[in-house]
């Protein structure tokens, strides 16, 4: 147990950080919650007033909002799963000492240095039916490419592809660094015992990597909503709402529609949704840490 003196010192050191966090996050959250209970809208015929939970009730009869929930979930689950799988495969390959691997690694991390806005612009050009590279490549193998950004199904796929492309390198890099710390003797022992390369990946690399996969997975889920700029540039939530996530709809409601109260309610809902997804995994993460100690 720590002495109470040490505890007091903790608080002292933490105070400046806590003050900043309070000002920049707690206060805005409280204001957002308060706003969500009002009818504030610059487009309304009536002045703003307190309306209780009416905005929240409205949410559940708003089809556009209801449509955005599954899309948010798809855009969290699918890209993150793909990033983890592809990241693992790439890390396993890059761990091998093959000729030219140094250059390959360098190329491979290139997407990490691009801001999401640039990624969005780049992919938008690639997906353009007449000039885009994607349909050209498809045409080389005899496939007539779809109208990526004006077809609801393909637009969602396009966003997923851009997200996978953008953040797989991060995942792969985390996996790779973790793998490089694995003791070499286990692998040597496996080779002596006659294990094939695939078997040593399956029975040594994968189990050793499991904690890293979990941590990286949690981080990716939390950050999956940083996909906002890509949606903004690539599809702007369209066509017909096919790529509109909950936070994007909140943004549109607030900044385009100027329905501040309603938009606040959407964002509070979004916040709850995110807590619901991340809280259990964070708890699990902490328990894991505890056990390791």
């Amino acid at each position: 147990m720590h002495s109470s003196n040490a505890q007091r010192a903790y608080y002292k050191y933490l105070a400046p950080t806590m003050a900043v966090i309070f000002l920049l996050t707690v206060v805005p959250i409280i204001v957002t919650v308060v706003l969500s209970l009002t009818s504030l809208s610059y487009r309304s015929a009536n002045p703003s007033r307190f309306i209780g939970i009416q905005n929240y009730v409205r949410l559940f009869s708003d089809e556009r909002f209801l449509n955005s929930i599954p899309i948010s979930i798809i855009l969290i689950v699918v890209p993150v799963a793909a990033q983890l799988i592809l990241g693992f495969i790439i890390a396993v390959i890059m761990k091998e000492k093959l000729p030219g691997m140094g250059w390959l690694r360098l190329l491979f991390v290139a997407p990490m240095v691009l801001p999401p806005i640039v990624m969005g612009l780049m992919w938008r050009i690639l997906f353009t039916p007449q000039l885009g590279g994607v349909n050209y490549l498809l045409s080389l193998v005899g496939i007539t490419g779809p109208n990526w950004l004006s077809d609801p199904t393909y637009a969602l796929l396009a966003v997923i592809m851009a997200a996978v492309w953008g953040w797989t390198p991060f995942v792969g890099l985390m996996f790779l660094t973790s793998m490089q710390s694995f003791p070499v003797d286990i692998y040597e022992a496996a080779v002596i015992d006659g294990a094939s390369w695939t078997k040593s990946v399956r029975y040594i690399t994968l189990p050793l990597l499991r904690p890293t996969i979990f941590v990286v997975g949690v981080f990716r889920v939390i950050e999956a909503l940083a996909i906002f700029p890509i949606i903004f540039i690539l599809t702007n939530g369209g066509p017909a709402g096919a790529t509109e996530t909950v936070n994007f709809y909140g943004y549109v409601s607030g900044f385009n529609f100027l329905r501040i109260g309603y938009a606040s309610a959407i964002m509070v809902f979004f916040f709850m949704m995110l807590l619901l997804i991340t809280a259990p995994s964070v708890g699990f993460l902490l328990r894991n840490q505890q056990m390791e100690r």
Binding site: I21, L24, T25, V26, P28, I29, I222, E223, L225, A226, F228, N247, G250, Y251, M267, F270, F271, L274, L275, T278, V282
Partner: peptide
Amino acid sequence: AFLVFTLLISA
């Protein structure tokens, strides 16, 4: 706190 911060920035 970190989560909240990330959320606010991304949102």
